[in-house]
């Protein structure tokens, strides 16, 4: 075991680049989530992109640094929240049918002009919920994989 194997973070160049790109990746992911009903992509893809920022942080700054900023309970709660919001919105249409409000209809709330951001009724909110769940879940999975690995360096 040499000295390097103890340190899990990377060099200065990588860290600086990561500092610059992590916010951008996060913003791009948020864009994909929020425009899920207009452009290709959606909750899952956007959430995975945001989680990519987290993975970059984990690789560039190392496990020790990531552990300080990762609260297992908070992420677990966030993930549950995403699922519950999705389910709750699906249940809002229950007076007619389960998932009734998922598709655009006349007279739905937030039914703006088609093609604009606020135009698809409840669908963007569902995308946000899915994005939240995927992001929290992927981050938790990555942290679990890096923390509980059993093999030696």
């Amino acid at each position: 075991m040499n000295h390097r194997s103890v340190r899990s973070d990377m060099g200065l160049i990588v860290k600086t680049t990561a500092r610059a790109t992590i916010p951008l990746i996060g913003i791009f992911g948020a864009y994909i989530v929020s425009h899920g009903h207009l452009t290709p992509g959606g909750g899952f893809q956007g959430g995975a992109t945001i989680a990519g920022a987290g993975v970059l942080f984990l690789i560039a700054f190392g496990l020790e640094e990531a552990k300080k900023r990762y609260d297992h309970h908070a992420y677990s709660a966030l993930e549950s929240l995403g699922g519950l919001v999705f389910l709750g919105i699906a249940m809002l249409g229950l007076s007619v049918a389960f998932f009734y409000n998922m598709l655009w209809r006349k007279g739905i709330a937030f039914a703006g002009k088609p093609g604009t951001l606020l135009s698809a009724g409840y669908l963007p909110i569902m995308n946000l919920a899915v994005g939240l769940k995927v992001f929290a879940g992927l981050i938790s999975a990555m942290m679990a994989i890096s923390m509980y690995r059993r093999w030696k360096e």
Binding site: H73, S76, A77, E79, S80, L81, G83, L84, L87, M91, L94, A97, F98
Partner: peptide
């Protein structure tokens, strides 16, 4: 009928929240 899915799904999603208590 939809509650046959809604109830366990809600239970599963809220299980981590309830374990915080």
């Amino acid at each position: 009928l939809p509650f046959l899915i809604i109830v366990p799904l809600m239970g599963a999603f809220s299980m981590p929240l309830s374990s915080l208590l």
